[in-house]
Design a protein around this nucleic acid. Sequence first.
DNA 1: CGGATGCTTGAGGTCTATCAAAGCGAGTGG
DNA 2: CCACTCGCTTTGATAGACCTCAAGCATCCG
Lengths: 244, 244
Amino acid sequence: MTVATPVRIGPVKAACSNCNLRELCLPVGLSPEQVGQLDELVATRRTVPRGETLFRTGDSFQSLFAVRTGFFKTCVSAEDGRDQVTGFQMSGELLGLDGISTDRHACDAVALEDSTVCVIPFHDLEGLSMQITELQRVFHKIMSREIVRDHGVMLLLGSMRAEERVAAFLLNLTQRLHVRGFSRSELVLRMTREEIGSYLGLKLETVSRTFSRLQDDGVLEVKQRQIRIVDHNALLQIVNASTC
Amino acid sequence: MTVATPVRIGPVKAACSNCNLRELCLPVGLSPEQVGQLDELVATRRTVPRGETLFRTGDSFQSLFAVRTGFFKTCVSAEDGRDQVTGFQMSGELLGLDGISTDRHACDAVALEDSTVCVIPFHDLEGLSMQITELQRVFHKIMSREIVRDHGVMLLLGSMRAEERVAAFLLNLTQRLHVRGFSRSELVLRMTREEIGSYLGLKLETVSRTFSRLQDDGVLEVKQRQIRIVDHNALLQIVNASTC
DNA sequence: CGGATGCTTGAGGTCTATCAAAGCGAGTGG
DNA sequence: CCACTCGCTTTGATAGACCTCAAGCATCCG
């Protein structure tokens, strides 16, 4: 709203050392000294207003980005324009891993609210991870975790019904929010029904109907994007339901 | 068939240097000298008879595996027993990247035919990649490529219809086989209809019907697992079809 | 040769998509 | 301050794609 395109915030020290996300982000498990070395690498931040892209498919890949504040979606597009949301990223999570493969980004990253990211020049990260065993290890684990997450989404898309997908989605979101200090039972969705549907392989009407049904069943309270989880166990049962 | 469980083949030199897959596998882009260093790391092979697992969910993660000969599937399972094939791997492709995240494998890898793999102790690989910039770079690209591939599968599962999924699947398989010197138009499926269906988020009957329809339309010739692609362009059009 | 496994095909049912309309809420401008 | 617009959401009716259940057929292998 304030600016039309993302802007670089000058030479602002990113300072992983002082960041309260360091236990969720790249520095996890590093010694204070090692985090200090990261500080020199992660030198800049960038703000991305709501609705703007952090990067687009085909953009030259230079850096990874760590979400500092805000919320993103990533999506891939087919030639015919259909697109698929591949993930939602919140604070402490990395964006841009797709770009390493071909030195060009393979998806779009869009801010769903005004956001800030830390810029991690990838070349430098590779260099530093050749010096710090633990950093290399953490980075590999983060990439592997993304692969495992993707496989979970495949399971969801390939073999779950609408209600199960929505339940799994809500449980995943609340779990990640809880780690960041938010309530386990209340959340505000940052994305539209259509974006949820795209992520879950459903149409927006189906997402809406599913929310309504879960509300009727006393599992949720839904007020637009405000969700209250009334019966957490019911959600768990829905996800684990054995072909009933 | 010959042995009940996978066995280690003693101290057989794997010798990436002499391997005709080295342009498709981990050594891609490395100098002969660097490949020589890899040789010392990738010291053993392992055979996996058809139907046996290379690793299972929960197994301790020690090594990555490069498929040398044969064919694998990987699959993840939900608590209720449903499972989802997350990929099919052929020669030169890596298995086990999922295990890095938690030091335990997060999926099962099953040989679909008698296969051999090269064992790549991961700890050693991390060590060597701290010495050889190019190796680190190649490894990161391989992991990233897996992430990009997974996103493509999400797009397929989330927004394509049965015929498009099957067409995309066949094009993907033939493309990978072609790189390995096989025909672009003929292939022998190594997996059952059920496994294809699991990968594509369809039931085996739907896969079978889709094959039959494509055959009736003159796009394919299907004889059980033998597939001949009669009209390659038609397959391409099906995949790129804009919501017709 | 005969059982086991996998594949094909049909009929009917279910879930989700599609199309359409109305409701809600936030921000805008008169 | 209120009416208005716009984007998003909800809800209904209908249609279509895929699933389920079931039977018969092919193929492989002991």
